[in-house]
Simulated scan of single mutants.
Amino acid sequence: MDQGKLKSNLILITYAILLFLSLQNWGLIMNVIREVFHLIVPFIYGFIIAYLLHRPFNFFYNKIFKFDNKCKYKILKHIRKPIALVTTYLVIIIIFIGIISLLVPHLITSIETLTRDLPDHYKAAQEFAETIFKDLHIPSEFILEIQQYATQIVQQIISFLYSALPNIVDSIFNITSGITNIIFGIIISVYLLSSKEKLVLQSKKILLAFTPNHFAYHIIRISRLTHKTFSNFISGQILDAFILGLMCFISMSILKMPYALLISVIIGTSNMIPILGPILGAIPTTFIILMANPTHPMQAVWFIILIIVLQQIDGDIIYPRVVGNSIGLSGLWVMFAILVAGGKFGIIGMIIGVPTFAIIYTLLREATYFKLQQKKISSTNIDAKEKDIED
């Protein structure tokens, strides 16, 4: 056996032994991974915060505080980055406090009113249903069965809420314990934003030093593609959700529909999820409108029509201009990405699944075209042959 084959076989045997040991101690390995993940949670928060704030920071750093060479105050150039950092965080904090002070009191009032009036709404809906049944001359036995089913559904909802209370308490404790991680994450994000160029350069040097050049440049290119896709997608989705929520609030206020602010927040937030978001947001909000005035179900119908109109305006006019072609996926693949990532990781998976799959789709498309070129096969020829077969 020559030296090359001996080396390859030794590497293969080493990998096989490591794989066997990993499978034998899978539980221990997962525990170690969980502990490591628990330790680096503040750094993950810091990276997410820094990534979300990098565009505002770049705006202040490159546009607002861009001092030219003719500036007589040389010290301004040295404190340019700290000024941009402080301004970025101050603006975000002011916006965050403003949103909380404006939205939260109205949201709490809407939720309290809805919760307080829910029994009355249920009773009014029951009386309205009985009136309709009498007018339609429906047999009393059938009405009694429907009432029994309705009572069972209400009891199941109440029991579900009671069983969910321990989970809610646990979630509150988790949120409380997570505040510390968020605080550390904010501090870490300041360091990441202030030294992002240096960190990127160091990462490139390490990658080029310890990996083959073609592999290193391939990873760098994928990183740039990932950054561009996620950055455009997230910023576009946030702006689009805000515009849609604002349009919903203005429209509901003009039409004098109840709980305009609460429903607009739900509609805008759910719109962060592509395709399925509007449906997920419209179901509970329609129920809220219906329960607010159960004797006038047409108001819920008009609300559904309003949401359909707003979604058409958003999909045809606003979304293409705000998000543009940053996803680069057809509706079928967007739905596939949402269902797969959402089924595995929930709401977060629905949001990040689309840009992630867009990156995979782009890389697979590039690899496919590269392989076709190697085989000297033109995609136009394939399309022409397919057309001949169809004819």
Rank of each mutant, 00 (worst) to 15 (best):
L261K: 08
L239R: 11
V265C: 13
L262D: 12
M247V: 09
S264F: 13
F242H: 03
F249H: 10
I254L: 15
C248N: 11
V265Y: 13
M247G: 11
F242E: 02
K256T: 10
S264R: 12
Y259F: 11
T269I: 11
G245P: 06
I267C: 06
F242M: 09
M247K: 06
Q237V: 00
I263R: 09
I263K: 10
I267Y: 02
L255S: 14
S251W: 03
I250D: 07
I267K: 03
I254M: 15
I263L: 15
C248M: 10
Q237E: 03
V265Q: 11
P258T: 01
T269D: 09
G268T: 08
I243F: 06
Y259G: 01
G245R: 08
F249D: 00
G245C: 05
L262C: 11
P258G: 02
I267F: 03
L246P: 02
I238V: 11
Q237Y: 02
A241Y: 05
Y259E: 04
Q237G: 00
A241G: 07
L246R: 00
G268S: 08
I243M: 07
S251G: 08
I266Y: 08
L255A: 15
C248Y: 03
L255F: 15
S253A: 15
L255K: 14
G268K: 05
C248S: 13
M257G: 06
K256S: 14
M257C: 08
C248V: 05
S251N: 01
Q237W: 00
I250Q: 06
F242Q: 04
P258S: 06
G245A: 03
V265A: 11
I254Q: 13
I250P: 01
L244R: 02
Q237H: 00
L255I: 11
T269K: 03
I267P: 01
F242S: 04
S251R: 02
M252V: 07
I267V: 12
L244S: 04
I266V: 15
S251K: 02
I263E: 12
S264Q: 13
P258L: 01
L246K: 02
C248A: 13
I250A: 10
M257Y: 06
I263M: 15
T269S: 14
S253W: 14
I238Y: 04
M247C: 14
I267R: 04
S253R: 15
G245V: 04
I266S: 04
I254G: 12
L255D: 10
I250C: 08
I266D: 05
I254T: 14
L244C: 05
A260V: 00
I254D: 15
S264H: 13
P258F: 00
M257W: 06
G268R: 05
L244A: 05
S251I: 09
G245E: 05
A241D: 09
G245K: 07
G268I: 06
M252R: 07
I263Q: 12
